[in-house]
């Protein structure tokens, strides 16, 4: 290694810090390059496969075509009737409405059920019946009730996100350390105080894991719902791509959905780091 000194005599603290940062930067940089290389290799392989007719261009467009279409679709409503921005907003609107509602209802419900045994006994049978129902099986009923607008789809998204939110909050708070509960008891805390001062913080890691799953679920369910009942949105755009035999439209839709998923996961990770910063110490 070129960055090891012969003797530590002349190494001041500033030098040591610089050395440490240099080493860390090197490894970070190395792994980042690997990630970028992986992504590029995938795109090149894809481009190559279509260009050499390994896969017919009737079924798969090249990455370059998709990028081109992305630019065009920003201002061109053809063929599905809306420009890309509107489709994205329309989907985001539904996803966030359903997802947000699931968080606001699912997490507190899970926490209370996990902590209060009586409440658990009361709620559990209803939940256990609702839980295994695939969210998309609500689609016909919601169309009858609420039509094909935002509410109907948000309702289905809600169901798909609600279950993991509740289960994880429930499991998380159940894992609260008995020792910490005892500590709080001997400090004179009431059961409700222990619930929100010890139980809820203890559940955070699991809650976050649940929110991640819920986010993935809501995005997946949303697209399914839009394919069945919608007049705009990314799922609708994909469906139209199929009807017009335009694989580039379909792939653009898929890529946009994937990218938005990545952005959400990233934002959630940032929030988690901030709230659970003590874990990294």
């Amino acid at each position: 290694m070129g960055d090891i000194q012969e003797s530590a005599d002349r190494l001041g603290n500033a030098e040591r810090v610089a050395l440490d940062q240099g080493r860390k930067k090197k490894t970070t940089y190395f792994y980042m390059m690997l990630s970028i290389t992986g992504l590029l290799a995938f795109l090149v392989l894809w481009q190559f496969a279509v260009m050499t007719n390994l896969v017919s261009s009737r079924f798969l467009s090249t990455p370059l075509e998709v990028i081109n279409l992305f630019v065009v679709k920003l201002s061109d409503p053809f063929p599905d009737g809306e420009v890309l921005g509107i489709n994205i907003l329309s989907s985001l609107n539904v996803a966030l409405a359903g997802f947000g509602l699931a968080i606001v209802i699912g997490i507190p419900l899970g926490l209370f059920m996990g902590w209060y045994r009586g409440f658990d006994a009361f709620m559990r049978p209803i939940f256990e019946i609702v839980r295994p129902i695939p969210p998309v099986s609500w689609i016909p009923l919601t169309i009858v009730w609420l039509g094909i607008g935002l509410q109907a789809k948000a309702f289905i998204v809600f169901f798909s996100a609600f279950v993991p939110c509740l289960i994880n909050a429930y499991t998380g708070i159940r894992q609260t350390s008995q020792v910490l509960i005892n500590v709080a008891k001997t400090c004179g805390a009431s059961n409700f105080t222990i619930f929100y001062r010890i139980g809820i913080p203890s559940s955070f890691t699991m809650v976050f894991a649940g929110v991640r799953v819920a986010l993935g679920n809501s995005w997946a369910t949303l697209v399914a719902a839009e394919m069945l009942a919608a007049s705009s949105g990314l799922g609708y755009m994909i469906l139209m791509g199929r009807q017009f035999a335009r694989p580039d439209i379909i792939i653009l839709g898929i890529v946009v959905i994937g990218s938005i998923g990545v952005i959400f996961t990233f934002l959630l990770g940032r929030l988690e780091n901030r709230l659970l910063g003590w874990k990294r110490l």
Binding site: V179, N182, V183, K185, T186, P201, K279
Partner: peptide, 18 residues
């Protein structure tokens, strides 16, 4: 029951990590 006049130091490291 638990009484504020009685305090306890626990065997396990019983600190709130957060």
């Amino acid at each position: 029951k638990s009484d504020e006049r009685i305090g306890m130091v626990f065997q396990k490291l019983a600190l709130m990590p957060w």
